[in-house]
C-alpha cells in the first residue's frame, strides 16, 4: 500500500570545511524542515520512502569583527529505504538525497548593528544542486505517528 504523510522537525546544521580553510570555528545555525512523505511498502519490513522537504541549513561563525550567520534554504528530496528492525516500532532509514539551493542569506552582527545580504538562486556563488546522503532512525509510536532523528551529509561542496 501507498500512504501519504507530512513531517516537520528541527534542523541543527553546520558545515565541514575544506582542509586549509580551518582558521575559524563554526557553530550550529538552528532551523527547521517540513514537507510531505510517501511510504510505499515493498516487502514485509522494507519500504521505499521518498520525501519532498523544505529545509534551512547553514552555520554561524565568530570572527574578530562580530558574528557571521549564513542561512541557506533548500528543497531536499531524500530517496530513502526504511528497514524495520525486528518487528518493533524501530526502523533504520537510509538513502541518498538531492538538495536544491533556493536562496542564501548572510547576516553580519558586530554588536552595534546588523548587515544582511540575500542571494536568490545565484549560481555563480553557490552550487544549486547537491548530492548527499542520510542515515537515521524512525520510531513508530503508532500506525500514524512517528518520531525520528537523522544525520545528513552532502557529498558535494557548496
Amino acid at each position: 500500500p501507498i500512504r501519504f504523510g507530512i513531517k516537520a522537525g528541527v534542523n541543527l546544521p553546520n558545515i565541514i570545511k575544506d582542509d586549509g580553510n580551518n582558521n575559524f570555528d563554526t557553530k550550529l545555525n538552528p532551523g527547521f524542515n517540513a514537507g510531505i512523505t510517501l511510504d510505499i511498502g515493498l516487502i514485509k519490513g522494507l519500504a521505499f520512502t521518498p520525501e519532498l522537504l523544505y529545509a534551512t541549513k547553514g552555520y554561524k561563525a565568530e570572527t574578530s569583527f562580530g558574528e557571521f550567520t549564513q542561512t541557506t534554504h533548500f528543497i531536499d528530496i531524500p530517496i530513502l529505504a526504511t528497514i524495520n528492525l525486528g518487528g518493533s516500532g524501530l526502523n533504520l532509514v537510509v538513502g541518498p538525497q538531492v538538495s536544491f539551493l533556493t536562496s542564501t542569506k548572510n547576516k553580519f552582527d558586530n554588536g552595534f548593528g546588523t548587515v544582511e545580504q540575500q542571494f536568490d538562486e545565484d549560481s555563480d556563488k553557490f552550487k544549486k544542486s547537491l548530492l548527499g546522503g542520510l542515515i537515521g532512525f524512525r520510531y513508530d509510536i503508532n500506525d500514524k505517528v512517528d518520531l525520528h532523528g537523522r544525520y545528513a551529509l552532502d557529498f558535494q561542496k557548496n
Binding site: 500512504r3 501519504f4 504523510g5 507530512i6 513531517k7 516537520a8 522537525g9 528541527v10 534542523n11 541543527l12 546544521p13 553546520n14 558545515i15 565541514i16 570545511k17 575544506d18 580553510n21 524542515n33 512523505t37 511510504d39 529545509a55 541549513k57 547553514g58 552555520y59 541557506t72 538538495s99 547537491l130 548527499g132 537515521g136 524512525r138 500506525d143 500514524k144 505517528v145 512517528d146 518520531l147 525520528h148 532523528g149 537523522r150 544525520y151 545528513a152 551529509l153 552532502d154 557529498f155 558535494q156 561542496k157 557548496n158
Partner: peptide
C-alpha cells in the same frame, strides 16, 4: 568551499 551537514529530529504523520 564546504559541505553541509545536518542533524535533525522531528515527527511524522501518515494519513
Amino acid at each position: 568551499e564546504f559541505k553541509n551537514q545536518v542533524f535533525s529530529v522531528g515527527f511524522g504523520y501518515k494519513f
